[in-house]
Design a protein around this nucleic acid. Sequence first.
DNA 1: TCAAAAGTGTTATCCTTACACCCATGT
DNA 2: ACATGGGTGTAAGGATAACACTTTTGA
Lengths: 328, 328
Amino acid sequence: MTSVEPRPTLPVEINLTAAIIAVSQGEPAILAMRGSGGSGASDGLPSGPFNPLAHRTFEIGLRSWVSEQTGVPLGYVEQLYTFGDRGRHAEAQSEEPHVVSVGYLALTRMAEDSPLPANTRFRSCYGYLPWEDWRAGKPRVIEEAIVPALQKWTAREPTRQNARGLTRADRLRILFDETNGRFDDETVLDRYEMLYEAGLVEEAKRDGRASPLLSTIPPLGTPMIHDHRRILATALGRLRAKMKYRPVIFELMPETFTLTALQTMAEAISGRHLHKQNFRRFVENAAVVEPTGETEHGTGGRPAALFRFRREVLQERPAQGLRVGARG
Amino acid sequence: MTSVEPRPTLPVEINLTAAIIAVSQGEPAILAMRGSGGSGASDGLPSGPFNPLAHRTFEIGLRSWVSEQTGVPLGYVEQLYTFGDRGRHAEAQSEEPHVVSVGYLALTRMAEDSPLPANTRFRSCYGYLPWEDWRAGKPRVIEEAIVPALQKWTAREPTRQNARGLTRADRLRILFDETNGRFDDETVLDRYEMLYEAGLVEEAKRDGRASPLLSTIPPLGTPMIHDHRRILATALGRLRAKMKYRPVIFELMPETFTLTALQTMAEAISGRHLHKQNFRRFVENAAVVEPTGETEHGTGGRPAALFRFRREVLQERPAQGLRVGARG
DNA sequence: TCAAAAGTGTTATCCTTACACCCATGT
DNA sequence: ACATGGGTGTAAGGATAACACTTTTGA
């Protein structure tokens, strides 16, 4: 039975955090502020508390924080996940209010010339998550550092299962091996969480659960404050998944573009190398783009035809994305 | 620049709400409490405030509320979405703390005999969302009530576009028409949201945005308190999507089952009729089940072979679901 | 003239959809 | 024997994955 007596307001604060992704020169980039938040010199994402008196919805509040902190205009915005254990050491002992993070994915076109605050820059996503970039084959850090360290971690409790019934060895195989020659580009969060659980990322040290192995391996990507790297991992995974069934990628492209530029964009985000003809055939028969008639010169070879996104596909039906194939 | 001075805790309360789905006798059912919450006699989902001092994570808090209010054991649990505008009339004027709802999907096997509190029962999902049940063809309520009413709503502002660039007519066509003979079973939330926006569901009246048409049509499904029907719609859509790529459906099945029972389950959830052979072939070559060797008699005809879920598929790779085909 | 990038043709294979028919049991 | 639901074979069509080759420009 639900109690009806008036409850004291519980000490909970809502924090809104944005993973703002853009792509420039074939690198997917995340907007990060260096040395933000007062937690040492780590990078952080734009974020701020949600004040329901000032902003009617989360999204309005988020846009306001991002605008104030970075000046970057947001296009596509999507809620990702709400994390109840932000700095996972959070315990009853603390005097501070408990903080709950609502993470958002936002996409923006990068304007090379737009002014950003001094400590704020677009930085490659793969600087924070280097094991996610398979465009030039399996990243060396996986075989050289991650797999050996995780194997030791696995050996420590070989039979223990997680909530989904998987042992550590199962997860290692599923997440860091190309099973059937395939790398699953969408399980970004699971990979990050496994490294965190095993105590192999800096954030684990901060939360008091670092592995003794942590000091024996090179740092696995640049750390971030609070749970921001976790939010970035969630954002990248979601974007990779969404791109396959919704035309979100065009939120990142300029008005007109070549097919090669589009493919490079898809590769940057999915972290995989794609097959040229198959990519083009797919784009063609999905009818998501149309030629402008112009060509782009000065690419070093034959000029490329320019295309634009056919906005009408949004009105048509299942609003197709780019179902990128298995591998190039 | 983030301010570092101590902020007063903002008056925000986190509410945890569970859409608990089970299936019995071919009907997908949602656990609902009649006349709960003090908001009149409407139905509500199990829910309660999150107290970080009592519960370390949202999920622990949620399980505790559900257990206390209903006694139902939860199997699979997944976070859905966090709604910042629960009873969307929420405005600064109110004295009460602002409430933010974190919605969860949970699955459970229905035990026919288990005792439930008096006001609590599993009720058909399609009682709340009748336009989602296409198993026997297009639901009559769509052509008879929904489409005419939405057409009038569309005509009122024919050129207005929403955030995704869609006009009302676009949305009507996309959401309530079988485009290319296909009904998109995953866009449950979009359909509910369109009806809400158009003021055609009871909840809109409560929030002061009912359409004058509301009294001219039969009620569109049973209403719920707060945003609970919205959470149910989110849950059903997510479950329909997830079922296609993860074997979550087995969380709802008994230990052993016939293939027909499995198909009935998939149909109950997806709201569509499926093709028998194709369904069986899919199950077969996904290798997600194995025969027990037993058969079930007394089904009225030839006895059916019994199967069980192969738990090993969780260890194998992309943990397949039931990719239900277009239509039966 | 040649490097560099754009752009095309074709085939084997597998998955999806959709037919229509046979089988084993209880009454 | 027959109604009822369980269970199968097969073929057309389309999507995918993988081949290697031609074309057009700038330097």
